[in-house]
Design a binder for these strands. Sequence first.
DNA 1: CGACGCATTGACTCCCGTCAATAAATGTGG
DNA 2: CCACATTTATTGACGGGAGTCAATGCGTCG
Lengths: 239, 239
Amino acid sequence: MIERLVRKLNARDAITPEEEDALRGLISTTETIPAKKVLVARREKLRHSVILLDGLMCRYRDLHNGRRQITALHLPGDFPDLHGYTLHYLDQDVMALTRSEVAFVPHDRLDRLMDQFPRLTRLLWFLTNLDAAIHREWEVSLGQRSGPAKAAHLFCELHTRFSVLGLAEDTAFPLPMSQTELGECLGLTFVHTNRILRTLRERGLADFRNRTVVIRDMAGLKALAEFDPAYLYLNRHAG
Amino acid sequence: MIERLVRKLNARDAITPEEEDALRGLISTTETIPAKKVLVARREKLRHSVILLDGLMCRYRDLHNGRRQITALHLPGDFPDLHGYTLHYLDQDVMALTRSEVAFVPHDRLDRLMDQFPRLTRLLWFLTNLDAAIHREWEVSLGQRSGPAKAAHLFCELHTRFSVLGLAEDTAFPLPMSQTELGECLGLTFVHTNRILRTLRERGLADFRNRTVVIRDMAGLKALAEFDPAYLYLNRHAG
DNA sequence: CGACGCATTGACTCCCGTCAATAAATGTGG
DNA sequence: CCACATTTATTGACGGGAGTCAATGCGTCG
């Protein structure tokens, strides 16, 4: 059930069996969410948070001109709205990009966890801070990187994050979203996103097709993106 | 000493006198930081965090092409690197934009706080989540808003944040940074930032001069920015 | 088979970056 | 207090990256 979450946490800090049990005990129920469904609406009062068990989710914001910015992508093991525990409502919508499995975590169980497991509490706090670190790196991409570098950087990030979960191959990972949605992550229109994907393909760097990203030249892709994974906090023994 | 922080927290949730004392007890020493000084370097191992008492600070990231993205602005009462408590090092540099006063908070005192004050712990966790909410709103700006709307939105945000602290007038607030630095917040070059400031001035919306922003037409500015302050979580009684 | 969503490409426009020059403001030392 | 250097602000000319509009192809599904 929570294997992905444990795997994600273990990549950062050792989890004891007791803590793993405590995490398991957080879950009340699970549910299957159809693609395109908004799971948590902006401003909605929250009494539970959600662990993504399987599938792909995002957080986003719509603007009046019809454009949308996706501000976060969530992989299995992520806690897309854990911040809702302290914020009480979300500032953005959470949507399933694909059919997804989620587990509900009532906030009163988090209250109890905070009393009994300070170390685990700090780990959950860490998870929300990791989330924020990814937001910051996206700010850098959105503000400063060139179109191709934006796409390259996102591919590098996702390859790393999927690898941690054991869900990526050496040079490929699933990315079940449309070019429109990819563009909404990168701050680009789908037309321009399509052109950028073509340049990455023509330069022999990466290929996004059939909902899968194939990396042809990892070093070149990382160089174009100036990818530095420090913000993913994977250095369990260095940090 | 921590009046600004208390004021910031009180705008979100009531702080008891005991909690205020506990917050005061977090501080070990204070220090004056000269302008342009990097207070916390990326990757540096951390044993304390910092409360900004007075001045203006930012977090940023430099890219190889010489460009820089500022990912967060910090006002008095902010905790610019509180996330360093769980992350152990920062993914970005923290710099003083002006001469600043800071207070140091050793992480072992936060450890003790977590054992003794779960509600206050949740409030500190809230602060890092509020920080992340601002990151997300900046992602929306950087990715989707037009140049003038980016500047307008930042002005609206800062006016609100300064107002909470009692540091803004009805239609003006201090912004002691250069146009270059403002551009680094907005993802624009200083040349274009200058042009955008001119259009805001010519449209009678806002005027940024002498390190001060004067808002001439609040409704118009908010409309241009599509400013919705929900992400600042100020609705103490609604959330 | 037709409807629909998604991908691809071209033509055109415009926002924004680059390069460059100059003015204005600020700071510094004598 | 002035002379000078440095930073910051302003503006113009030019080019390129990204948005808009539009047409076409393609795969899926009812």
